[in-house]
């Protein structure tokens, strides 16, 4: 198991997550779905300690995450955000960033390999990263995260700000990494995408898990809340 959450609560003045119990298996594509404001991103942020639960316990590889250094955890548990942030400099500078922060060397050959893994052309290596398209930036962000050799990748709606062509490219790059053993914890609103890629999923409503299971169990559920969400009838909180 990569992650086990035991009765996790998160509160920031008001309750955001309530009694979250879940297990994320190694190599899975674990989907977090639910209406806006349901706590999906907040749950994701707990997994690399950008936020800390108010109560409850999170285990990573059977160890409480507090027992692992924050930097080590964040290196192993990478994250892609909805809007990728490029630092000033070339694509190469961006991909090498994680290694630079950890004061490790990264070879040009390794950078080229990462570029290839995310489906970007070599000629982009020296291009100013800020000048790339949204889809290219997201793939550079993916290559940057992969340079740290993560075991888990947290995806906070990484395709929601992209055009359909770019969505396909980023999705393919991510699925390829999953095939290579990378666990993906994926927040999305895109039900078609969820149906296509998920191995497991949970439906969050008002900070609580209201449905969980394999892709088939979730998407064929007779649960009223699940059906309501699938039909787009659930109000944004």
């Amino acid at each position: 198991m990569d992650f086990i959450l035991k009765d996790v609560d998160l509160s920031k003045g008001q309750p955001i997550l309530k009694h979250i119990n879940l297990t994320i298996k190694k190599g899975s594509i674990f989907l977090l779905i639910g209406p806006s404001g349901s706590g999906k991103s907040s749950l994701l942020r707990l997994l690399n300690r950008l936020d800390e639960p108010t109560t409850g316990q999170i285990l990573y590889n059977s160890l409480p995450i507090q027992s692992i250094s924050v930097q080590q955890l964040r290196t192993e548990v990478g994250m892609l955000f909805q809007n990728p942030v490029m630092i000033k400099g070339s694509v190469k500078d961006n991909i090498a960033l994680g290694c630079k922060l950890a004061k490790k060397d990264i070879s040009e050959a390794r950078i080229l390999e990462l570029l290839d893994r995310v489906g970007l052309e070599k000629k982009l290596l020296t291009k100013e990263a800020e000048l790339l398209s949204g889809g290219q930036k997201q793939r550079v962000a993916l290559a940057r995260a992969l340079a740290n050799n993560p075991k888990v990748l947290l995806l906070d709606e990484p395709t929601s700000a992209l055009d359909p062509g770019a969505v396909l490219q980023v999705k393919e790059a991510l699925l390829e990494q999953n095939q290579a053993g990378l666990t993906l914890v994926w927040v999305t609103h895109d039900m078609e995408l969820a149906k296509e890629v998920a191995t497991e999923a949970v439906l969050l409503v008002k900070g609580e898990i209201v449905a969980r299971g394999t892709k088939e169990e979730i998407f064929n559920s007779e649960n009223q809340l699940t059906l309501s969400f699938m039909k787009g009838e659930m109000k944004t909180e």
């Binding site: 964040r74 990478g78 994250m79 630092i87 994680g98 922060l101 995260a145 740290n148 947290l154």
Partner: peptide, 16 residues
């Protein structure tokens, strides 16, 4: 804020 969180998520220390 977004840049800081992106860097933290990559394993940067707060100072970095």
């Amino acid at each position: 804020k977004a840049e800081i969180e992106a860097l933290l998520a990559l394993g940067a220390s707060p100072r970095q």
